[in-house]
């Protein structure tokens, strides 16, 4: 029931955004350098921000459950997670907000770890100020994000394996044994690669071919 309510809000354009902001400590990775509580307080008054809090590990199960509970309780329709690089956990948090009924593209991450706490380790003050800026930027962006629908496209169930050494042979066999057609391309007149040239191989001390 609650889930449905959240879904409605997120897809209704023209509504005033209800943003949730989460500043992740990442244990000590961020928390040791950036004052996460301060960042959360600093960003709590911003227009549209309904919830702003610091959180131990955003990616952990309790962390995700806390955010999901907030989304449902406060009717949040956009989420900012300020934690590690989106290259690491964007997919995790997209799934999380989707499970709470939001469109997965209504998420924005602020990179407080790889691009803040880890590169300004000796300047906690400055790093905290930068974190505030980064989170503010994320909030300003998340406000304008639009729900997007994932498209599906057809796929050819075949694999090209480039190179017929031990790795290429093994990958080909595994794929083919699972019923996938494999095109194995080898530059030389025979497969085998460097491995075929070896005599005994460690650790088993048996022959390579």
């Amino acid at each position: 029931m609650e889930k449905k309510v959240a879904e409605k809000i997120s897809t209704n354009s023209g509504q005033i955004a209800r943003i949730g902001v989460y500043i992740c400590h990442c244990g000590l990775n961020i928390g040791r350098t950036v004052n996460c509580k301060y960042v959360a307080d600093k960003t709590s008054g911003i227009d549209g921000v309904v919830v702003s809090k610091d959180i131990g590990y955003a990616c952990s199960e309790p962390g995700q459950q806390e955010m999901i509970a907030d989304i449902l309780e406060h009717g949040l329709d956009r989420i900012v997670v300020a934690s590690c690089s989106p290259r690491l956990h964007e997919a995790t948090f997209r799934q999380m907000i989707q499970s709470a009924g939001l469109n997965p593209y209504l998420l924005e991450m602020a990179n407080l770890r790889e691009q803040c706490s880890w590169v300004h380790m000796n300047e906690p003050e400055a790093a905290t100020q930068k974190a505030v800026s980064l989170v503010k930027m994320a909030i300003s962006r998340v406000r304008l994000l639009c729900p997007l629908a994932v498209r599906t496209i057809p796929l050819t169930k075949r694999t090209l394996v480039i190179g017929g050494g031990i790795a290429g042979i093994q990958a080909s066999l595994d794929l083919a044994d699972n019923g996938y057609e494999v095109i194995l391309v080898e530059k030389k007149p025979s497969i085998g690669g460097t491995m075929a040239q070896l005599d005994k191989t460690f650790p088993t001390m048996d022959c390579s071919i």
Partner: peptide, 11 residues
């Protein structure tokens, strides 16, 4: 293997 088409001397 019937599932593997092998092209040697190929790039």
């Amino acid at each position: 293997h019937p599932g593997i088409t092998l092209h040697t001397m190929s790039e």
